[in-house]
Write a protein that binds this DNA or RNA. Structure first.
Length: 512
RNA sequence: GCCCCCGUAGCUCAGUGGAGAGAGCAGCGGUUUCCUAAACCGCGUGCACAGGUUCGAUUCCUGUCGGGGGCACCA
């Protein structure tokens, strides 16, 4: 079985069956109230307008057909036109068996046959110092998106692009050189402990800084497949510009981006003859388009103006601008007992990724940096984040994994096969239904580039699991079908929670 | 002036074109002979405002107000 083969889960099969009867796509949702069934759909309400029939009438028709569908125990209608379904014990057993059969791949492969070669470029901070917390959000977010894309079946490469030449880097080198001579940094240059430390060492401070950045990110569980430097892109600028509509004005060479969807034209070659950053972007994006089906950029909110610019370049090269996917994330604020901690590269009070990880650990840092949507500014209370207790959702979720691992360790129990027939109770049904949602959650998180959907789901799954597990009477009946069913349920839970944690770069410990 | 993001509980924030909107923190009270109590249970008059689209809007559209970020021949 290839990764591209989309798993049709028990839930999807049921949806498809209803869709066939309804003659329209059906999405089954879990109602908030138990008396509305295990799953419900509003398809009759959606169809009522187009079919010019009362929604309840359509729902009743669907209910009659649904009642005989496999896995459906009971189907009812409810005003104004909902269709509510109750599922049979057999459905739960089937759903569980499928999850176990799929193993670690369960929920993956949502790309189907639409697999792409995708490059995710992230962090890409100029190597003038340690990675800051802002770049850490970039990395945590970008890496999660990369993990989601890979899980969906895409071929993913992580890329770090950095500036190793240019005026800013020369200023940085000059600052270190000055420090080595025991002099003050040049006008607008870099100072601080970091520059003094570099001055104490040998060699090019830019390369040394990149090594340190790589080490910090590796510790943060981000591994890059490629490191591109500006100077290696430079020779391609001329060819890139030759492929774009350009003109000369005031001694500079401009690209006519205003005709490609940008709001103004951009200078590529300054009057001085020096290429602008934009010229490097052009050459670099041309590379990406040649090598990948899709280029993902992860950029801070201060770069939102780049979206139009980069897409304009894609158009200029005759490529579909949709192949350029620019993800924008907002700022990070750290607080400590309510007090703001400042972050500024130019001031001395930088909060670095390493400092954050030293303080709260990799797991909490990765979790907190993605559990909010990227388009929202983020506040992390480091005092709370480092607390290794129930207050901390990341440990609450990890605990699920530790608990399930402990069960199989202690009991020496193997995964039951086949899943025995058992009439699940309410908590067990809830847990199976939650697990059954996972493929949909993973697919949506991938499509929307929204890892926060994964953390949100993981917390809900943890809630369901802990509730299920807390009733000790469930652990008593050794050797029974009930116990075997529950072991299967815990095995599936363990697998899904491990996957959720992996998708956001958090460890899944066997013990805590 | 123009562009982007955001206004949901005391705080930090999830979330959804549908049936009583939900997590964590903060606060109060319970549960332990049990393959980890890092757990479970209970206590909540909240979708900035005004129009519009819709059978139905907190969700989509427009406007207003408020917060943040942009608008370089910087990188």
């Amino acid at each position: 079985m290839g990764v591209s083969e989309t798993t049709r889960t028990a839930l999807v099969r049921l949806q498809d069956e209803l869709a066939r009867v309804a003659g329209a796509p059906v999405v089954l949702e879990r109602p908030t109230k138990a008396e509305h069934g295990d799953y419900a759909t509003n398809v009759a309400l959606r169809l009522a307008g187009a079919r010019k029939r009362p929604p309840l009438e359509i729902a009743a028709e669907l209910a009659r057909a649904a009642a005989s569908a496999p896995g459906v125990e009971r189907a009812e209608t409810a005003p104004p036109g909902f269709l509510n379904l109750w599922l049979s014990p057999a459905w739960y057993g089937d759903a569980l068996a499928e999850m176990l059969a799929a193993g670690g791949d369960y929920g993956g492969g949502s790309a189907g046959t639409a697999r792409e070669r995708v490059q995710v470029e992230m962090v890409s901070a100029n190597p003038t110092g340690p990675i800051t917390v802002a770049s850490a959000r970039n990395g945590a977010y970008g890496d999660s998106v990369a993990r989601l894309l890979a899980f969906a079946g895409h071929e993913v490469e992580r890329e770090y692009y950095y500036n190793d030449g240019g005026t800013q880097m020369e200023l940085f080198r000059a600052s270190v050189a000055a420090a080595r001579r025991g002099e003050e940094p040049p006008e607008g240059g870099y100072g601080g402990d970091y520059v003094r430390e570099l001055a104490a060492g040998e060699g090019d401070p830019v390369e040394r800084t990149i090594e340190l950045i790589d080490a910090s990110l590796e510790r943060f569980r981000i591994r890059f497949d490629g490191w591109s430097r500006q100077t290696e892109v430079e020779p391609e600028i001329a060819d890139a510009l030759a492929a774009l509509p350009t003109y000369q004005r005031d001694g500079a060479i401009w690209v006519r981006t205003s005709e490609l969807g940008d709001d103004k034209d951009r200078v590529a070659i300054r009057a001085s003859g020096e290429p602008t950053y934009f010229a490097f972007d052009a050459a670099y994006i041309r590379r990406k388009l040649a090598r990948f089906d899709r280029a993902v950029y992860v950029l801070g909110a201060d770069h939102h103006g780049y979206v139009a610019r980069l897409k304009a370049l894609a158009r200029g090269f005759g490529a579909d601008p949709d192949r350029i996917d620019v993800l924008i994330y907002q700022l990070v604020h750290l607080t400590r007992g309510g007090e703001a901690t400042k972050m500024s590269k130019r001031r001395g009070d930088v909060v670095t990724l390493d400092e954050l990880v030293d303080e709260i650990g990799v797991d909490a840092a990765r979790w907190y940096l993605v559990d909010r949507g990227p388009d929202r500014s983020l506040e992390i209370d480091v005092d709370l984040a480092k607390e290794r207790s129930r207050k901390n959702p990341v440990y609450y979720v990890q605990y699920v994994h530790a608990r399930t691992a402990g069960i199989f360790r202690e009991a020496g129990a193997a995964q039951p096969d086949p899943v025995p027939t058992h009439e699940p109770d309410g908590e067990e049904r809830n847990l199976v239904k939650r697990l059954a949602e996972f493929p949909r959650v993973a697919a949506e998180a991938t499509e929307r580039r929204a890892p926060q959907l994964v953390t949100d789901f993981a917390i809900r799954l943890a809630d369901d699991f802990h509730r299920f597990y807390h009733d000790r009477s469930r652990h008593q009946v050794v050797g029974s079908p009930e116990q075997a069913f529950r072991l299967a349920l815990m095995q599936a839970t363990r697998s899904v929670i491990a996957r959720c944690l992996d998708l956001v770069g958090v460890a899944a410990p066997d013990r805590m």
